Computed example of a mutant assay.
Amino acid sequence: MDAKQSEVKPGTAPFPSAAPLRKLNLNLLYPLDAILRARNLTEAGREVRLSQSAMSHALRRLREHFGDDLVIHVGGEQQLTPLGLALRPEVQRVMREVDGALNFSLAFDPMTSSGTLTVAASEAVEQMLLGPVLGNLSTAAPGLNISICPLDVARPERALDDGADLLLLPGERTLERLESLPILNDQASCMIWAKHPMLQDCDDLTEAQYRAARHIVARGELTESFPLDAAGAEMLRARHICIRASSQATLPAIIIGSDLVATGSMWLFQHYASMMPLKVVTAPFARRPNQIVAQWPRHRRDPMLAWFVDQIRERRQQYPGALQ
């Protein structure tokens, strides 16, 4: 190579063959988000208030930018391409952050401010912890709306993709990239009818009693998230499950008057037992606490979210001995 050709002039890029940065007009984010979520282009245009021709023009520019069709028609129905499917949660995340930035406020007055928060939590945590907090909002923050969505304990990041602002999840499942606040320590316990035909005088179940019992489980049962040792995990797998209920909330009505045993949150079961003829007994597992943690994105500096987290923080004080 000629010396003059190999020489790099001061102030110039040493890699002239590098691909140029592709820039996207940020105004196309709104049509892109609508296109990736709507059933067809007309519906997408209606959502962002653009005409059919304007949406077609936007889609053409987006296809040129990504080098992909994004949406195709198969059998008369619109379907996303693999790239379109992969883009959808990413674009939704960006749109949430844009919306948060444009609606950001340095102050939140619970008596006069308004807004909406989406919280992902298990049914047990919703009843045990969120219920009292939400019941107080009508007087504490009348303009604040809360939407609760179910938490997939095995994949909590899905809740973030679906728009959750706050996660309430077991400490074993926390995500490293999020801010965290330990709320309380829970542990696996058993709940029985107060007049259980064989166990009403027991405060602690033996392994033999647990294995011999008839068990009930509920959809979304969180026992898998409790940090059990190998022996405890094996006992759970070996249970004689007689009834599978639709939710945690139906357990008391089914257990009362029966010989069934439920396994789950000590705090939730004690809440039930305080109101109904139920009894909480110690499970025959190693007593290892399961920490419930609140998590939210690190970039969120939202005073409304901070206020709501403070309400949960205050609520946890009603669980003596539950904190680290």
Rank of each mutant, 00 (worst) to 15 (best):
P156G: 03
E97N: 09
S147A: 13
A230Y: 08
R219G: 02
K195W: 10
T112H: 11
E224V: 13
V153D: 03
Q318A: 14
G100W: 01
D33W: 02
F66I: 03
P142L: 10
V71A: 06
L41D: 06
H65L: 12
H299W: 04
P150S: 11
D152M: 06
R300N: 05
F15T: 13
P89Q: 00
P320M: 11
V119R: 00
A286M: 14
E176Y: 05
A245I: 02
D186A: 03
H240I: 00
P16K: 04
L26W: 13
I243F: 14
P320Q: 06
R61M: 13
M128Y: 10
D302F: 01
P320T: 10
L62T: 05
N27Q: 15
P82Q: 05
S56L: 03
A233R: 10
A101K: 01
Q270H: 13
A54Y: 05
S114N: 08
L62V: 10
L167P: 02
L167C: 04
I256H: 09
P89H: 07
A306F: 01
T81I: 11
R173E: 07
R63Q: 13
E126P: 00
N27H: 13
I256Y: 12
L144H: 09
C149Q: 15
M198K: 10
F66Y: 12
K195F: 12
W296Q: 02
L83D: 01
R219A: 14
M111H: 00
T250P: 05
T81G: 04
Q127L: 09
P252H: 01
R315N: 13
L323K: 07
G131H: 11
H271N: 15
D68L: 08
P156F: 05
G67H: 02
R219V: 11
E126W: 08
L26V: 14
R46G: 12
L168P: 02
F285D: 03
V280S: 09
S247C: 07
N27R: 15
L268D: 07
M275S: 13
F308D: 03
A86F: 03
I216A: 08
E224Q: 05
S147H: 14
L305C: 04
L137Y: 10
W296Y: 08
E179G: 06
H215F: 13
D69W: 05
G84T: 01
F269K: 00
V261N: 10
M198R: 12
W267I: 03
I72A: 01
S147F: 15
D162E: 13
N185Q: 15
F104A: 14
R237C: 11
N25P: 12
V125G: 03
A18D: 09
E7R: 14
L184V: 05
R288S: 14
R96L: 07
F226E: 02
Q187K: 01
L323F: 11
V281M: 08
P252F: 00
A194H: 08
S6G: 12
L29Q: 04
G11F: 15
